[in-house]
């Protein structure tokens, strides 16, 4: 269970995020660019710092302004799929994936994890390639594999499908759904494209009031928000 209630001042508006994600859910934050979606993900991952409020994951405070808690990203156990995938371009696919497995003890266990996850995502044949030799869909799968071997308790995805062409998007959407079921951890996904909403167990849209943008499920019943 992820519980979020924080505010952050951005150049154009104040961003408020107040929502909860239960185990096994996929929350989709759907809104136009410039509505603070990526900022929310980065605050969850610890790459940015909110000004007020708290972030609680499985009963553990990741960020709490009042208690002056702000765990660094490497201690949050949260996977992040970047929009540009951010694969390490100086490493092979295999080394990219193993990078995430450093926490697993023992070479054997790491290799085992590597084989499992490459098999799961169907990328075993790519293991000796470098990121620039991969297509968009392949990069996406490698990024997922790399995030999953770090055994996160929450996975964040920044526009995971919008960079791909239509056919691929259909397929990867199915794969994401499948993966989510197998892994059993909650996903938070941001998108500006309705095409990704089909994945959601819950969709949030931003509410705008002049210099405030609010992402919440509490005050607005589904279907009545402004986009």
């Amino acid at each position: 269970m992820l519980e979020v209630d924080f505010q952050k001042k951005l150049p154009d508006f104040t961003l408020t995020a107040r929502f909860a994600v239960r185990e096994g859910e996929i929350l989709v934050l759907s809104g136009p660019s410039g509505s603070g979606k990526t900022t929310i993900l980065e605050c969850l991952a610890g790459l940015q710092k909110p000004d007020r409020g708290y972030i609680n994951l499985r009963g553990k405070m990741l960020f709490d302004k009042a208690e002056k808690i702000n765990l660094p990203p490497h201690r949050r156990g949260i996977g992040f799929i970047f929009q540009t995938y951010a694969l390490f371009e100086h490493m092979t696919v295999k080394d990219n994936i193993l990078y995430g497995a450093a926490r697993a003890n023992g070479r054997k266990k790491r290799e085992q994890l590597l084989l499992e996850v490459m098999d799961l995502l169907g990328i075993s044949h790519l293991q000796n390639r470098y990121p620039t030799q991969l297509s968009g869909g392949e990069k996406q799968r490698v990024a997922l594999a790399r995030a999953l071997v770090s055994e996160p308790v929450l996975l964040l995805l920044d526009e995971p499908l919008s960079a791909l062409d239509r056919n691929l998007r259909e397929r990867l959407r199915g794969e994401l759904k499948q993966l989510h079921k197998q892994w059993g951890i909650p996903f938070v996904l941001v998108t500006h494209c309705r095409c990704e909403e089909q994945l959601a167990s819950k969709v949030l849209r931003p509410l705008r009031f002049q210099a405030r943008v609010i992402w919440t499920e509490a005050e607005a019943p589904q279907g009545h928000e402004s986009g």
Binding site: L47, P73, I78, F80, A86, Y99
Partner: peptide
């Protein structure tokens, strides 16, 4: 250096020292 590659390393459990030697410096 692509800042997102450094950030990706952090979300994968790498502390600042490891990020520096395995990602920033090689890139």
């Amino acid at each position: 250096v692509d800042i997102n590659q450094e950030r990706a390393a952090r979300t994968l459990g790498a502390g600042e020292v490891r990020v520096f030697f395995t990602v920033s410096l090689p890139l």
